[in-house]
Amino acid sequence: MERSAVRKRFDESDVRSLVAGLGAAEFAGGADVAALVENRCEPSEPGCKGEVDLQNLVARIHRGEVSGMEDLYKIFAQGIRFFLCRHLGPQELNDKIHDTFVIVVQAIRKGDLREPERLMGFVRTVVRRQIAAHIDKLVDSRRTESDLDVGVRLADVRRNPEQNAAFEQKAEFMVSVLDSLSERDREILSRFYLDEQSQEEICKAMNLSETQFRLLKSRAKSRFGELGKKKLLQRRMDSISMRTSACCAN
């Protein structure tokens, strides 16, 4: 599965399995689940954008209202998917999202979230704990089951051949960008991106102003973008000329 899985929306089975996981009688009705699925939309879509009254949302979930669950999905489903996929990879992603939602909803219904305005922070904490727990489990299973062929599951971060080729091309563009820079400018980028030194450290060590530092970084980025566009245009021109010559030959 690819990174684009991050953008997947919840389907009806996701919502049904969450409802089943919660074991809440008021969530078990078919019509309500269908309504949940029917009305869902992404936070980026009109109607989801804007402001959400967290106090009201938490109160509705606490009371066991389906519309509260629905809004929780609208707001957080994609974000939770994004975080879990970024840290753990796409394996068993739906199960992990499901577990996260169950924890959040159960905590709210038990009244564990005393300050509704901290809902974002609370969800973030639950997601981070889920990630940490999963990594712990992996480390533990690697330690205890190292002799076995099965049991150790790691996120497959390899790209497909097409993505690999695109990445290699990008790296080549960046090599050209680096070649076009002075030794000193290359060192600045290397300190920032490779050695992870802070802007302040780099500016101090290399006697630079903040503006110079920002300028170099943005210049390298825009040069990289320009090269990419130029190569893309060149490729399109090549393909047009190849098609034209093929037509002429025919």
Binding site: S44, Q78, G79, F83, M120, F173
Partner: peptide, 22 residues
């Protein structure tokens, strides 16, 4: 990031850019 798809996309782009530079 939990609620903003736009910033999620920007972060993915930043991740990729850092990998490319490295």
């Amino acid at each position: 990031l939990l609620i903003c798809p736009q910033c999620q996309t920007q972060l993915e782009a930043a991740d990729e850019y850092i990998r490319v530079v490295r």
